[in-house]
Design a protein around this nucleic acid. Structure first.
Lengths: 190, 190
DNA sequence: CTGTGTGTTTAGTAGCAACTAAACAAAGTA
DNA sequence: TACTTTGTTTAGTTGCTACTAAACACACAG
């Protein structure tokens, strides 16, 4: 059982990546697919992936396509061969940047934008609302609450903008590798 | 409808944070709870949170506790008052570091460790297996596949270790704020 | 035009996790 | 002791999504 042992180790590795995958809210199949591709020296066809996993063709088909969209795998086609072959990306820093780029289009940035919209809503009608009601007790309280909310939302937006800048710089990098991270670590330790 | 308008804006904001929350795989209720606390000038009791959201007491109870565990909100108790009061953390950089710290205990690091375990499995029995079978065709192929997998897993582990170092440095920081991020951006732009 | 090999789409299923409603626990008050 | 006020736990429901099985689409071969 020498060769079976390699299969067992591969299976463990595949299961580990599956768990990581679902920890990040992604289908387990995506982790499994990436695992088998990552350990395969040559590109694999869809049916070969099916053979090495516990999933059906339909599931593999959809999952491998979203993996390709994320930049985690690459589709190859050999000429004279109707099959598609898939290869794992092995530069994880590339993957990180690819994922960060995809963040724009996602549901996430739409939600972020809604925070910005909340701020302009609060900043609009600056006195009109706050001074309209002349009963001063209620008026003062409402005004204070309004100001408080405006300040808080402004702070949150500033935080998000800062993060957005960071992401933008990262995605704009020509290259990114271990050394890049090392330099950041050095800066932070100082 | 002056005061209703503030409520509407708050409602929009709450919904925005709810969406962000579920985008990150967290319950929508957590985003909603944080939103109402974040916009409230004073700490709120559990029942007050219930009143300002669409969720029941049980859901709020569990969600607000996990929020507290994550460091996103803080529990306060007034003496002579049996109620618990909750306050939103407004330093998001603190929150980020708090969450990064909690990552250790999670299912995630267990999965990461399994990658490390895969590597030691592959590095064990270095020749025993690869040289055992004397049929050279099959032997060579099996050996090459083994070596390839070992290299790949080693690369992945190195990437994870690098990230882990970065996280460790961040959590060890005395302070972290906009300026910290600005410095990193400056370094990367250079 | 039929048949075969490939990938995609769809209808239905199953499992999981958030949530509701209500029972429960605990601690103070009468 | 019973009653009230708080928070927690539990049993059950709902809704979402990954997945399966199978139908479908398409391209090439004979």
């Amino acid at each position: 059982m020498p060769s079976t042992e390699l299969h067992e180790i591969k299976a463990d590795f595949t299961q580990g990546l599956s768990q990581i995958s679902q920890f990040w809210g992604l289908p387990k199949s995506m982790g499994a697919i990436f695992a088998v591709l990552y350990l395969s020296p040559n590109a694999l066809s869809l049916d070969e992936i099916v053979a090495e996993t516990t999933f059906t063709k339909g599931a593999i088909s959809t999952s491998v396509r979203t993996l390709a969209r994320m930049g985690l795998v690459h589709r190859q086609t050999k000429l004279g061969d109707r099959k598609d072959y898939y290869l794992a990306e092995d530069d994880f820093y590339k993957v990180v940047r690819s994922i960060l780029k995809g963040r724009e289009s996602s549901e996430f940035s739409r939600a972020i934008d809604s925070v910005g919209q909340t701020l302009v809503d609060l900043q609009a009608s600056p006195n009109q609302v706050r001074g309209a009601d002349e009963q001063r007790g209620a008026d003062e309280q409402r005004g204070a609450e309004w100001d408080f909310a405006e300040n808080r939302v402004a702070e949150m937006k500033s935080f998000f903008d800062n993060l957005d800048n960071l992401v933008r710089v990262i995605t704009a990098l020509e290259t990114m590798n271990q050394n890049t991270v090392q330099k950041v670590i050095g800066l932070l330790k100082k």
